[in-house]
Computed example of a mutant assay.
Amino acid sequence: MQKTSIEIKGSNFTLLVLYLKSNNIDLINKSLYKKVQEYPQFFKNAPIILNVSHLSLNQTSWGRIQEVIISHSLFIVGVTGCSDDYMKKIIINSGLPILLEGEKIKNITNNINQNISFFYKKYNCENKNDKTTKKTIKKIEKTHIINTPVRSGQKIYAKYSDLIVTNNVSAGAELVADGNIHIYGSVRGRVLAGANGDITSNIFCTALFAELLSISGEYWLSDQIPLKFIGKSAQIYLSNKVLTINSLS
Rank of each mutant, 00 (worst) to 15 (best):
Q2L: 02
E7K: 08
K9Q: 06
F13M: 15
T14F: 03
L16D: 04
K21V: 11
S22Q: 12
S22G: 14
N24T: 14
N24C: 12
N24D: 08
L27V: 14
I28S: 11
N29H: 07
K30R: 11
Y33W: 00
Y33F: 10
K34H: 07
K35W: 02
Y39M: 03
F42R: 12
F43D: 05
N45I: 10
N45C: 05
P47R: 12
I48Q: 03
L50R: 09
S53K: 14
H54E: 14
N58V: 11
N58G: 09
Q59R: 11
S61K: 15
E67S: 06
I69K: 14
I70L: 12
I70F: 09
I70M: 03
H72G: 08
F75I: 12
I76R: 02
V77L: 11
V77T: 11
G78T: 08
G81D: 01
C82W: 07
D85P: 11
Y86I: 14
I92Y: 05
I92M: 14
N93C: 02
P97D: 02
P97Q: 07
P97N: 02
P97S: 03
G102V: 05
G102M: 09
E103S: 15
E103K: 15
I105L: 05
I105K: 14
I105N: 15
I105Q: 13
I108K: 11
I108S: 04
T109V: 07
N110W: 01
F118W: 02
K121E: 05
Y123A: 01
Y123F: 07
C125L: 11
E126P: 07
E126T: 08
N127V: 00
T132Y: 06
T132E: 04
T132Q: 04
T132L: 08
T136I: 04
T136F: 01
K138P: 11
K139V: 09
E141H: 08
E141N: 14
K142V: 06
I145T: 14
I145G: 08
I145C: 06
I145H: 02
I145N: 10
I146P: 13
I146L: 14
T148F: 04
P149V: 01
V150W: 09
V150K: 10
V150Y: 07
S152E: 12
S152M: 02
Y157P: 08
Y157R: 07
K159G: 04
Y160V: 05
D162N: 15
L163D: 08
V165T: 09
V165G: 13
T166P: 10
N167P: 13
N168V: 07
V169A: 06
A171M: 15
A173Y: 02
A173M: 06
E174W: 00
D178E: 08
I181N: 03
H182K: 15
H182V: 13
G185W: 05
R190W: 03
V191I: 13
L192E: 14
A195R: 01
N196Y: 03
I199T: 10
T200V: 02
T200G: 05
S201C: 11
N202Q: 14
N202Y: 01
N202P: 03
N202C: 15
T206F: 01
T206Q: 13
A210K: 10
E211I: 00
I215D: 05
I215E: 02
S216Q: 06
G217D: 04
Y219V: 08
S222M: 02
Q224N: 10
P226A: 01
F229P: 12
F229S: 07
F229D: 13
I230A: 00
I230D: 00
G231K: 04
S239R: 09
V242R: 15
T244N: 10
I245L: 05
S247N: 13
S249I: 05
S249H: 05
